[in-house]
Each structure stands twice: as structure tokens, then as C-alpha cells.
């Protein structure tokens, strides 16, 4: 009876969507193989979490007792380990976020259990978990099998689709998170949001870049608008930077930043080799260019041959409609 615990990540009370994606996937596995799906919550509104978790298929939500307003690895790691020792889940899923990537190994070390990072696939077959994850920057995938119970697996955001199954709010139980005597040495003094919510280019999940096709500095706002709608970072080709239309910090390419986001949208970029060198490891590449022969289409997964001045604003609208 493999029970799966899913860590419900919250910052400032806001839950990360990856939690619902993981619960949805866990529920599918539980339905097929037996076992329950549990949410594990540290801090935040447990009733709200239980409602959401239940709606996505969780059977229970365990809320840790202690001070979890902000993340620190010592408190959170101890709590997750305490939960595992008490409830003995077979598998613990955390999001492969800045928090989850830190929490997973911290808790795993405390438990002496297996930890698998950045997974994009999860299956249960022959009594064992099969975890699929990209290696070599996505040039290859590896299937691994954890040999311990529990095993902690960090799931990449967007790897699974969040699906509401109409379940009622999950029952909430509190658990002793083992916080007595924990005094973290490393203390978060302050959390700083980046100004205007601008996402760092190299770390962004989505990058929208503009090339010479934008024709002038005044049109870069169009790129930034699409980036804003996607919560993406805005990049630029060397030509745009050299022309002085945007700052060098935006440059993607061999002479600028190397990025490998999940989605790279190239607007009005022909795809010179210097540019490709900086973005070709992106997982999904979209090209918008009026020249159908532009080399960017050779590396793109999806493309629109058309005038970016017409397409990009429409795409921004369409994205906003989808993202709400």
C-alpha cells in the first residue's frame, strides 16, 4: 500500500501550483496501485490547503506544529523528517523549486533515505517507483528507482497537470514536527522580492526575446509585455543590444547570457549562430518571424510565420486569457 505524501509549498501563505500538480499525479498512481495521498503543510492556512488538496485528490492533509512563516532548511527539514518517521509514507514529493530543491536533500540526509531531483515522470511498476528525470541539460533522460522507503522526489513544476477531481476538502490532522530544541543556525534575515517582479534571465522558466525585427527601441515594450503576461524574463539578440535599444544585461547568445528555459519565444530573431549558442538548450522553442527561411525555424518546435507587430500583442492577449 504505497502512500504518497506531497509537500504543499507556501510562501507568505500563497500555495505553489506544483503542489496541486503533484497531488493530481499522486492520486492517479494511488487509484491504480492502492494507497493514499497526503498533503504535508508547514505554515499557511490549513483549511484552504485542505480544500485545494482535497479538490485535487488528497485524502488527508497533515499540518506541522511550529513556526513556519518563512522557509529555513533546519526547521523545515526537521519537520519533514519527523513527519516521515511518524507517518511512514512510501514516497514524498516536493516541488523542484528553490525551496523543494533545498528541503529534499536536507530531509533525506536526516532520514538516510533516497532523494531524486528534478523529476519529470513518475510511475509505479512491479512494486517499485520509476522516476524519470532529465540529465545533461535535457539531452538525455534517465529512469531511476529509489531503494528506500520513504524516498523523496523533487518534481519539476509543470511536469504534471493539475486536475481537480471534485473531491471534498481533505481531513486535516496536525503532527509533531519535532521543532522542540531546533534552533536554526542559518537564519533568513530578510526576503526581498525583485523589483517589479522581474525574473532573472538565466533562471527564468520562460524567456521572451526580441531581435532586430522589432525595428526600434520603442517596440521592446511589446516584448516586455508578453514576458510580463508569462511571468517570463525578457531577452534580446545581440543586434538589439548593439543597436543600444536595450541594456546588455538582456542579451542572450554566445556573447551574452546562456539560457535554457522551459520555453523560449524568439520574436523577430533570425537565429544567427551566436544567438543559437545561447538558447538552443531551451526545452521548447517558439519562433515568430516573417521570414520563413530564417534559421531560427530550424531549431524551433513551434513557429508562426508572420508580422510580429501583429502576432505578439495578440499572443499576449491569448496568454492572459489562459492564465487568467
Amino acid at each position: 500500500m504505497p502512500n504518497i505524501a506531497v509537500f504543499i509549498e507556501q510562501r507568505d501563505g500563497a500555495f505553489k501550483k506544483v503542489a496541486w500538480q503533484m497531488i493530481s499525479q499522486a492520486r492517479k498512481l494511488a487509484d491504480a496501485n492502492g494507497g493514499e495521498v497526503w498533503g504535508v503543510l508547514l505554515g499557511g492556512d490549513s483549511a484552504a490547503a485542505a480544500a485545494k488538496a482535497g479538490a485535487h485528490g488528497a485524502h488527508k492533509v497533515f499540518a506541522g506544529e511550529g513556526a513556519f512563516a518563512t522557509y529555513d532548511s533546519e526547521r523545515y527539514g526537521t519537520a519533514l523528517a519527523a513527519f516521515c518517521r511518524a507517518q511512514k509514507p512510501d514516497l514524498v514529493l516536493v516541488g523542484a523549486t528553490s525551496m523543494g530543491r533545498d528541503l529534499g536533500p536536507t530531509a533525506a540526509a536526516k532520514l538516510g533515505c533516497a532523494c531524486i531531483s528534478d523529476a519529470v515522470g513518475l510511475a509505479f511498476a512491479g512494486g517499485a517507483w520509476d522516476v524519470r528525470r532529465p540529465v545533461f541539460a535535457g539531452k538525455c533522460f534517465v529512469d531511476v528507482v529509489p531503494k528506500t522507503a520513504p524516498a523523496i522526489v523533487a518534481i519539476r513544476p509543470n511536469a504534471f497537470v493539475a486536475q481537480e477531481c471534485g473531491g471534498a476538502a481533505a481531513a486535516v490532522a496536525s503532527f509533531d514536527a519535532g521543532q522542540a530544541g531546533v534552533t536554526p543556525k542559518a537564519v533568513v534575515r530578510e526576503v526581498v522580492g525583485s523589483a517589479g517582479g522581474r525574473v532573472e534571465l538565466t533562471e527564468a522558466d520562460i524567456v521572451v526575446s526580441g531581435g532586430r525585427g522589432i525595428k526600434g527601441p520603442e517596440n521592446y515594450a511589446m516584448i516586455e509585455e508578453l514576458a510580463g503576461a508569462l511571468n517570463a524574463a525578457a531577452g534580446a539578440s545581440r543586434a538589439v543590444v548593439d543597436a543600444g535599444w536595450v541594456d546588455y544585461s538582456h542579451q542572450v547568445g554566445q556573447t551574452g547570457k546562456t539560457v535554457g528555459p522551459n520555453l523560449y519565444i524568439a520574436c523577430g530573431i533570425s537565429g544567427a549562430i551566436q544567438h543559437l549558442a545561447g538558447m538552443s538548450s531551451s526545452k521548447c522553442i517558439v519562433a515568430i518571424n516573417k521570414d520563413a527561411a530564417a534559421p531560427i525555424f530550424k531549431v524551433a518546435d513551434f513557429g508562426i510565420v508572420g508580422d510580429l507587430f501583429e502576432v505578439v500583442p495578440e499572443l499576449t492577449k491569448a496568454v492572459r486569457a489562459i492564465r487568467g
Binding site: V142, V144, K147, V299, D301
Partner: peptide
């Protein structure tokens, strides 16, 4: 603690799929 079962190639990056529509708005949607 973790056993490697197998390596596999990523799903092939197919040729570029051109998205079209009646007009720019439709294609963008």
C-alpha cells in the same frame, strides 16, 4: 540508495510545427 534503470533519448525534436490561423490573432490564440 538510488538505482539507475536506464537512459533514454529525449523525445525527438521534430521539425518546426508552423501554427497558422485565419489572421494573426487566430494564429496567436
Amino acid at each position: 540508495l538510488v538505482e539507475i534503470r536506464q537512459y533514454s533519448p529525449p523525445p525527438a525534436r521534430g521539425t518546426c510545427r508552423l501554427v497558422t490561423g485565419d489572421d494573426a490573432a487566430a494564429a496567436a490564440r
